[in-house]
Simulated scan of single mutants.
Amino acid sequence: MSVLKKEVIPYLENMIYLPMVLTILERDRLLIQHGDFKLKKPYLGLVDEVAKCVHKELGNTAAYLRMNQLSVIRGKMDDIFTEYIFVHNHQEDCRRYLNVRLRNRTEELLTQYLRQPGI
């Protein structure tokens, strides 16, 4: 039985997915900078704005986790699964995520951030 309340799971999962989104944005920024783009500035601006938004969300998530004494630890990885351990009050809840699911959810989040109005 899980030691975690359902409402904290999205925050814990944000600590998995948001760093992945930032990694992708950083890599894409480098590709745009060094790529053969005629007009790089608009693309770089978009990537920077999205990264800023993701950083803010990650900061809010980290604050929530600190306030509620929660943490996320990456466990074992293989070609199919990645294990994450969610810790609360010295109790651990070990969850395994399909790597394909991690990739797909990261892509969904990136798409959501890119479509946000004002970015």
Rank of each mutant, 00 (worst) to 15 (best):
M1E: 15
M1N: 05
S2C: 06
V3K: 11
L4C: 03
L4T: 05
L4F: 04
K6I: 01
E7M: 10
I9C: 04
Y11R: 00
L12W: 04
L12Y: 07
N14C: 05
Y17N: 08
P19F: 12
M20N: 14
L22H: 06
T23Y: 15
T23N: 15
I24C: 04
E26L: 11
E26P: 07
D28C: 11
R29T: 15
I32D: 08
D36E: 11
D36K: 08
F37S: 00
F37P: 09
F37W: 13
K38G: 06
K38D: 13
K38Y: 11
K38Q: 12
K40F: 06
K41T: 10
V47L: 15
V50C: 07
A51K: 04
K52L: 08
K52Q: 10
C53P: 00
V54Q: 03
H55N: 08
K56F: 12
E57R: 02
E57Y: 02
E57D: 12
G59K: 08
N60Q: 06
A63F: 03
A63T: 00
A63V: 04
L65T: 04
R66T: 03
R66D: 06
Q69I: 03
V72S: 05
I73N: 08
I73H: 13
R74I: 08
R74T: 09
G75D: 12
G75L: 12
G75W: 13
G75N: 07
K76Q: 13
M77K: 11
D78W: 09
D78E: 07
I80F: 05
F81K: 01
T82Q: 15
E83N: 02
E83Q: 10
F86V: 01
F86S: 05
V87A: 11
H90S: 15
H90F: 10
H90D: 15
Q91L: 10
Q91G: 02
E92W: 04
C94Q: 12
C94V: 14
R96E: 04
R96S: 09
N99W: 01
L102E: 03
R103W: 12
R103T: 10
R105C: 00
L110H: 15
Q112S: 00
Y113F: 13
L114E: 01
R115A: 13
Q116V: 08
P117I: 06
P117N: 00
P117L: 00
